[in-house]
Design a protein around this nucleic acid. Structure first.
Length: 662
DNA sequence: GGCGGCGGCACC
DNA sequence: AAACGGTGCCGCCGCC
């Protein structure tokens, strides 16, 4: 429980301008004593680029006040955009969007302290319990009323009637004097609880030391607080979409899918829903009487059923099954159609820009996640026949620059393990996977590299001959070694590695071969094994690991776990050292890029992060593009004051679409 | 009609 | 001997 007074002050609902001015003057003083102002809003809905503030509330811990939206202009400059005032919020970016849509730019104010982020730093394992209501329950043992209780539930949408909105619910409540008081009490409670939580987490995080002299509280204020604003600006800018391009894809996709549906219907004598797994199961296993060799996981019921996934279908397709081939084609189209064409078109704003949400507490490793829409899983152009990334374009008179780290996670493995051979190879600019092939199979390194170069030329039709069998073999070896290296970062086992390699290539790998590859890989880079074993020991003894910047990834109580859960936790935490540190590096680059005088001076605008990749929009002037590229590269390659044991090269490209800029 | 589990699949 | 880390979202389907 917190050390400060938690008693709830009465809620005030401001109706007259003179009241508003009195409270404004009060908060202009009291925010200093409280170390910030709690701020929350009730909005007309949850669409980032459209919805607006209906009611908003301020609290300095001793008072709580609810105001209607009409007072936003009056408070805009002195309070909401005042750089002297720090705000305490829960889900800060959301409220900031709503205020921006209502004419107030909160990004001009002081800090945004987001209690979601504080709660995450306090315990990243409390999944789903970082929200305001959950934190108030868990930390203050109080249960504030829910929105529904005060404002009622949105009735189910009915055909032919006008949809009721949250704005309607709030307006209805305000029209009734009794309900209005309850609404004000509810809204102002959230602002009060938010500022209390911020102070509570300040105390708690202050006790948790990341390393000598630095607490999680320090980390929150120096890294996470500024980062929230960086992310908000990216969300706010949005990414320009070539809606015509997407629109043009729709028709042909629908047509081809219908053709395939008809083929199945004709053969089966009835409609087969190709999007339904049970229907597909029926078609292949009952109707065509195919043998099954793979079953589904079976979830909570434990009911395992014959699988119809890509792996199975590709196996059948390889044996000449045209139905499997057709279904693969259907799935390939439908995935893109449903997830990336129609859904993105529905999320465009009036300028055809799409505004993702970049979730600061998205991954327990410390990575971001992206949603509504998820722009971190748009198909790569090399794999995508529809080239969805070509629909992501630069705005008028702008150009995109895309920068990504090369083998960031492998380099971090080298840094953490301090493996001599690995570090030397990286510093000498040697291709790690080729080196592994060379050592593992006793082949000359230059010959392996030669095969890689030949393949590159072949892809660009510059080779002037076919690849030799020897080259193909070497490339296969390299694929295997590359997959092994990645797998080791994930804590892979022999069977999984074998099945993955079998899926990738022409050769069938046995489980023993998988284990052998892993063993051999460890023999080439022996310190990596030592590092992983050491990390596992630490996880067993103290129950946590830390990333490059000292961020924690904590385990539950391992001694109470089943053997299976314990080893799962070990794999997760070992991986978190690498994945989390990569996230730290990306974050540091973004923080620097956001305030960099060169990039800011040229008007470069950061739009998107995809873990190890950053997308910017810059003025379409050759000299500007060139300067921004080299500046961004310099920032990314030296994200911290102190260098790592290996360099962190970043590759930078430019173009008018996301697909072509890489 | 909303919701959650499931199978499947896109990304790093 | 067995066990691939981190995400979000689609449509379907059964349940309430």
């Amino acid at each position: 429980m917190p050390t400060f007074d938690l008693s709830l002050p009465p809620a005030h609902f401001v109706e007259e301008e003179y009241q508003a001015r009195v409270w404004m003057n009060h908060f202009l003083q009291s925010h200093r004593m409280n170390g910030g102002l709690g701020l929350d809003s009730e909005t007309s809905g949850a669409t980032k680029h459209k919805d607006v503030v209906m009611l908003w509330s301020l609290s300095d811990g001793a008072n709580r006040v609810c105001l209607p939206a009409k007072f936003i202009p009056l408070f805009r400059e002195p309070i909401l955009e005042n750089p002297e005032i720090n705000f305490d919020l829960t889900n800060a970016k959301f409220d900031a969007h709503m205020f921006a849509n209502s004419g107030a730019d909160l990004s001009k104010a002081g800090q945004w302290r987001d209690t979601l982020v504080q709660s995450f730093l306090y315990n990243e394992n409390n999944q789903g319990r970082h929200g305001l209501k959950e934190c108030v329950k868990d930390h203050f043992d109080r249960e504030p009323p829910t929105f529904d209780l005060i404002f009622g539930k949105l009735p189910p949408a009915k055909k032919g009637t006008v949809k009721k909105t949250y704005a309607d619910l709030i307006n209805e409540a305000l029209a009734d004097p009794v309900k209005r008081a309850a609404a004000a009490d509810y809204a102002a409670m959230d602002a009060f609880n938010t500022t209390c939580l911020r102070k509570h987490f300040d105390e708690q995080l202050g006790q948790l030391m990341m390393y000598q002299g630095t607490s999680l509280r320090d980390f929150f204020y120096s890294v996470e607080v500024p980062f929230t604003k960086v992310l908000w600006k990216m969300e706010r800018r949005g990414f320009q979409i070539d809606a015509g391009y997407l629109w043009a894809l729709k028709g042909p996709m629908e047509q081809r899918m219908q053709e395939i549906e008809k083929e199945f219907a004709k053969a089966a004598g009835q409609l087969v829903n190709l999007r339904s797994v049970p229907s597909i199961r029926w078609f292949f296993y009952e109707f065509l009487k195919k043998e099954h060799w793979k079953k589904t996981k079976g979830g909570s019921t434990g009911l395992q059923q014959p699988s119809t996934d890509v792996e199975v279908l590709e196996d059948w397709a390889g044996q000449g099954d045209d139905w499997a081939k057709l279904l693969l084609e259907f799935r390939g189209i439908d995935k893109i159609y449903g997830t990336y064409v129609t859904s993105i078109m529905e999320l465009l704003d009036s300028n055809y820009r799409v505004h993702t949400s970049l979730n600061q507490i998205g991954a327990q490793s410390g990575r971001l996640s992206s949603s509504d829409p998820n722009l971190q899983n748009i198909p790569r152009p090399s794999e995508d026949q529809f080239r969805i990334r070509d629909a992501f374009v630069a705005s008028k008179d702008k150009k995109l620059i895309v920068a990504d780290y090369a083998q960031l996670e492998m380099r971090l493995m080298a840094h953490f393990s301090q493996d001599e051979k690995m570090i030397k190879a990286i510093i000498d600019g040697i291709d790690l996977h080729c080196l592994t092939v060379s050592e593992m199979y006793g082949i000359d390194y230059d010959e392996v590299i030669g095969a890689v170069k030949a393949e590159k030329k072949h892809k660009k039709n510059e080779l002037g001959r076919e690849l030799t069998n020897r080259e193909i073999t070497l490339l296969m070896y390299r694929q295997a070694c590359k997959a092994t290296g990645f797998g080791i970062i994930y804590g892979i086992g022999g069977p999984k590695l074998a099945s993955q390699l079998t899926k990738m290539g022409e050769k069938v790998y046995a489980e023993a071969e998988g284990w052998h590859l892993i063993e051999q890989w460890f023999n080439i880079f022996p310190s990596v094994r030592v590092f992983i074993e050491g990390a596992k020991k630490q996880i067993k003894s103290i129950g946590f690991v830390q990333t490059l910047t000292g961020r924690f990834r904590r385990a539950g109580e391992i001694s109470f776990m089943s053997k299976k859960d314990a080893s799962q936790t070990e794999r997760t935490l070992v991986n978190a050292i690498i994945q989390g540190s990569a996230a730290d590096i990306a974050k540091a680059s973004m923080l620097q890029a956001d305030v960099d005088p060169v990039l800011c001076g040229y008007g470069a605008r950061m739009l998107l992060q995809v873990h190890d990749e950053l997308v910017f929009e810059v003025p379409d002037v050759p000299e500007v593009v060139k300067e921004c590229k080299s500046r961004l590269q310099a920032i990314m390659e030296n994200p911290f004051g102190s260098p790592l044991r290996v360099p962190l090269p970043a590759e930078v490209g430019e173009g008018y679409t996301w697909a072509t800029a890489k």
